[in-house]
Design a binder for these strands. Sequence first.
DNA 1: CTTTTTATTGAACAGTGTTCAGTATGTTTG
DNA 2: CAAACATACTGAACACTGTTCAATAAAAAG
Lengths: 202, 202
Amino acid sequence: MKIAERKQKEKHDMHQRILNGARKVFLRNGYEQTSMRNIASEISYSAGVIYFHFKDKAEIFHELHKEGFSLLLKQLRVLDSVVDPFERLKAVGRVFIQFARENKDYYNLMFLVEEPLKNPNSGGFQIAQEAISLLHNLVKECQMNGRFIHLDAEYLSFMFLSSIHGICALFCKDRTISFINRTNDELMDNGYACFLNLLEKG
Amino acid sequence: MKIAERKQKEKHDMHQRILNGARKVFLRNGYEQTSMRNIASEISYSAGVIYFHFKDKAEIFHELHKEGFSLLLKQLRVLDSVVDPFERLKAVGRVFIQFARENKDYYNLMFLVEEPLKNPNSGGFQIAQEAISLLHNLVKECQMNGRFIHLDAEYLSFMFLSSIHGICALFCKDRTISFINRTNDELMDNGYACFLNLLEKG
DNA sequence: CTTTTTATTGAACAGTGTTCAGTATGTTTG
DNA sequence: CAAACATACTGAACACTGTTCAATAAAAAG
């Protein structure tokens, strides 16, 4: 059964080749501005063959969506060594914002692109929930240390994520330009510092 | 010169007719899912004529973008009667969130659609800056009342807007589904309440 | 060597934003 | 009133989009 084995590998290679091409073009031109023909020509194949390996454009989106979360989670896991949960929470926000800044297009894919498949049980969103529960547990840890004791952990998690996301979303969709005379970096960093200032008192 | 006058009126009527059709289809199907032919057929004209009255799809986007901000600002001006600036600030957030909930597609147009014209001086963004400065002034009023005295007004404004926007953006792009067992209304209202809780202590 | 399975192509379909020659209509001028 | 002109509109066309599919080449199985 050596042949079947090699065939499987070849299939997997092609799957990966398409994904690599798609990632390259997605992250260069954005999701909406990328066509299947663009992806195909990037890897020097015809457009049709993509549909032999992927159901449609949305399926490619989902693979990269998952990939983005993996990357983010990897960067967040570096903070596991930070002992104090509140310090870790604050660092999570910083890493999150840094991730958005450095991976604008991944961030768009993960949080801002119109969601083509609205089924949360489709597996594509399990990894998103993993990130959420990481945050949720962290908040609960903070509470065990006496912080945020009068606040609901789940709503606080949501609020924390929302606030960070708001900063990143304004940045990623170029809406920060309404704040004249401030660079993106100034706004994001000082905006987050301002948020932490409030958080300190909770 | 009665004729020229009527001609001008007719031109304006057509401009408005296209805008009305576009608004209807945009708010029904979303920006990306709306074609020029859809808009044209909505008002029973051929697609070509739109280009006699508008430069391109982006120009229509900008008119509706402005319209959305007018609507939001109108709803915010109701709060002018609220005397205490901090109470007004809190109400501004509530109205903002309510606006997003009731006008999901306007909200998308205003804050989440990929910006086709990135020139902030093009007039289309003056109204956005008007909204920002409304918020900025409100924060400064709060500071005069002794609140947030150790925080920078501009960064606090940005942070406030970001936090509210984050809640609305997650809602508008259906990313709240990652928080299982919670309805959108629960998340948005209690998330915001949580944020206000922190704000109270600033 | 033939049959069957698999991977790939390229043409085609229905849609998109946009442009433009042609037309019909109403206004101005001779 | 008739001729000339300007304006508003149409419909076909162009180059693009996501997607499907018959034809085909290549490789594996019998």
